[in-house]
Design a protein around this nucleic acid. Structure first.
Lengths: 222, 222
DNA sequence: TAGATTGTTAATCGATTAACAATC
DNA sequence: TAGATTGTTAATCGATTAACAATC
């Protein structure tokens, strides 16, 4: 029933995941350089602060359609603007966060989110100890209030930071409340309808890589 | 991006990063199945709870040297043990965490770390408001105490959760204190000597991917 | 035996790197 | 012009998927 007469395929430049993940790193360094008064930057200069090869950076910028000038490099203002626009970080999405344990509380107070287009406006929990409290300036409501508040405030994004056992239950509440995007920090693969965007964050993947590196370090010492 | 083992090479089975990042996900599901009383699992059954294709799981298990039985699948106890051993999650590393802001506090109380081989034993900060406090059961010391405590307690791992401006400074303190592994959550690329293992966590990469997915969702609606 | 599943070998796909021409 | 840097096209490298033989 939902048909996209004009919204097929390539209404938006399609970047690949590895590229997208690198963008915030670029952005951070570019802003630093800008704050230091620079106006242009070359990819060779950029990678001083980076782990990548210059050609990779150039490929990424080409993919985003950002033009550079031979000999001078890229205009900082232009790349910054292009990246922020591409990521949608220039206009802010309001979000609800469900699950105010250690991780959830942290995200409630995580500054970079607000600066990067995602503003958490309220927290939710079912623990009576937590409901009614204020964490990092954000009020915690009972989960049963979510649907009503979502409609009243027009919030369309949910962040799940509950243990995996209750993650699906929470997802169902969000879907019922008309949320269109879910950022899932739990270990459970959620069942969601196709029209809801769901992104699973795999925090333990990072720990795994670190653990293996540590082990290899240890073995190399022997 | 692929970090090869630097040194001699094959003292340890070498897994690739994508495989390593998938291991915790496998582990989590395998343990769930075990708790439900299962003894064997086939890759076809596994991917019900997963986003991957069965062949990919089998390839990963082969890489780790875990044998399966045609028709029956893999012995849960064996895979779980093999993965935990590979990740070094059966013996616990003690770690210091530096920077007790929102993110740092969260990690101090993040249960899965303890269960997965990384035990944070103390926090550090320079803010007098925070020094002396106890967060999630862990005492916060002044950064100037780190070196002495590291030696006394034999701690060899550091987790950096300070803003990027002070990250290098903190890293220098850790290196000076004889730490061998650094898990860096700041946005700064740290300068570390080759004998120190350094793993940079890119949290904003996840946000970037989620942001793009949200945008695409929005565009498809039009 | 019949059937399901593993695990090997080859094919495909995607991402990074290299070479180099185009540009200012 | 000389030199540095971009950006294109091709080569390489790595990861995933497919096909299928081996196994219980």
């Amino acid at each position: 029933m939902i048909e996209s007469t004009e919204g097929n395929g390539h209404n938006h430049k399609i970047l690949r995941l590895p590229t997208i993940k690198r963008l915030p790193t670029y952005l951070h360094i570019l802003k630093r350089l800008q704050a230091e008064g620079e106006e242009y930057v070359s990819t060779t200069a950029l990678i001083n602060e980076l782990d990548f090869k210059p050609i990779l950076v150039r490929k990424d910028l080409v993919l985003m359609g950002i033009p550079g000038k031979p000999r001078t490099g890229y205009c900082l203002k232009d790349i910054i603007q292009a990246i922020e626009k591409f990521l949608g970080w220039n206009n802010v999405d309001e979000a609800f966060l469900i699950g105010t344990g250690a991780l959830g509380s942290a995200l409630l107070g995580h500054k970079p989110f607000e600066e990067n287009g995602l503003k958490i406006v309220a927290g939710f929990d079912i623990d009576p100890e937590r409901v009614g409290k204020v964490i990092h300036g954000k009020k915690i409501f009972h989960l049963s209030k979510l649907k009503e508040l979502a409609h009243r405030m027009g919030v369309k994004v949910g962040i799940i930071t509950v243990p995996w056992q209750s993650a699906q239950e929470v997802a169902d509440v969000l879907i019922e409340a008309g949320i269109v995007g879910i950022w899932n920090f739990s270990m459970l693969k959620l069942k969601t309808p196709p029209e809801v965007v769901c992104h699973n964050e795999n925090l333990s993947g990072g720990l795994a890589v670190f653990s293996v590196k540590l082990q290899q370090r240890r073995e190399n010492l022997l």
